[in-house]
Simulated scan of single mutants.
Amino acid sequence: MKLQHNTILITGGTSGFGYEFASRLLALGNTVIITGRNQDRLDEVRVKLPGIHTFQSDVSDSEQITLLFKQVITQFPGLNMLINNAGEMRMISFHDTSIDLHNITREVEINLMGPIRMVQQFLPHLKKQKNAAILNVTSGIALMPFPLSPIYGATKSGLRSYTKSLRVQLKSTGVKVFELIAPGSTTPLNDKFAGIDGFDDKMLMAPAKLIDAAIKGLMKDQLEIYPGLAGVMRVMSRVAPAFLLSQTSKVGAQWIASKN
């Protein structure tokens, strides 16, 4: 895929992967639009990345997605690429009775329902474009359970399955469907794990390096992109899934036990 002269919408673009994508794609000569829930952080990105376009929007709210679509298509009718990046990751113990029935599924609304709704809303427009693409950002955790963040893992596994089905259904259209299977990275998403038993931040990949691999994969039409340790996790999830689960179960084991 050519990554110049596109009009690209990135959800969750104020930090982490979203910000790195925005910076790189803007530098390559694309029109880049980002969304975020916090207007102050969007304003900060506009200062850091002159030329970026921003919209305050929450992917967990279907009405805001509808409004976002109307605003974006009106101002940027040439939109031809959607990057579903917005996400949330929490440490959750099922022993914690303070988490109510609404709160327990918050990551489902953001990480899974958000991308599904975004695609459903923008797909008819994307299908009209000569060259179009959808990139869903999943995780190495989509390949295995991660007991410390069980809802996050479930959402990324679900998004991975959805992405594969979406690719099959769109094979006769001009819309390419990519998946970025991201390994752990030094982003705000992982800051909360600092000091947690069994968590090794030395295993985390620098966001800039990860997005560099993602950009190269997109240019090569690599529909599934596995940067860094994600490639190792892919193999291990096939040949030794029980061993992999035993290792991931060690992360936060003491923290989970403390909540019992």
Rank of each mutant, 00 (worst) to 15 (best):
M144S: 14
R117C: 10
K127C: 01
P150G: 04
T173G: 02
Q120S: 15
M144P: 00
P145E: 12
K128G: 05
S165I: 09
F146W: 03
Y162Q: 12
Q169G: 12
R117Y: 14
T173S: 06
F122R: 09
H125V: 05
K156L: 06
A133C: 08
A132Y: 05
S161M: 12
M118G: 01
P124L: 06
P124D: 07
R160G: 06
S161H: 14
A142D: 02
S139V: 07
P124H: 07
A132S: 13
R117N: 15
L170W: 08
P147N: 07
A142S: 14
V137K: 00
L126Q: 05
G140K: 04
L126E: 10
A142C: 02
A142R: 02
I151V: 15
Q129A: 09
K127A: 03
G174Y: 04
K128Y: 03
V119N: 00
K127L: 05
Q120T: 13
R117M: 15
S165E: 13
T173A: 01
K130N: 03
S161P: 00
K127M: 04
K171T: 06
L170C: 10
G158E: 00
I141A: 13
S139G: 07
F146M: 01
G174R: 10
K171P: 00
P150N: 04
K156T: 08
I134Y: 02
L148I: 04
L148A: 07
Y162R: 03
V137W: 10
P150A: 04
I134C: 07
K128A: 12
F122D: 11
A132D: 03
K130V: 04
G158V: 14
K128N: 08
Q121H: 14
Q129E: 10
K164P: 01
L143M: 11
N131V: 12
R160D: 15
L135Y: 11
F146L: 02
T155D: 00
G140P: 00
K127V: 02
L126H: 08
Y162F: 15
M118A: 06
V119T: 11
T163D: 09
G174D: 08
S149T: 08
G174K: 07
K128P: 02
L170P: 02
R117G: 11
Q129N: 09
K128W: 02
K130Q: 12
A154I: 05
S157W: 09
S157H: 14
R117P: 03
L123G: 05
V119L: 05
V168Q: 13
K164L: 15
L135R: 11
K171L: 06
V168Y: 11
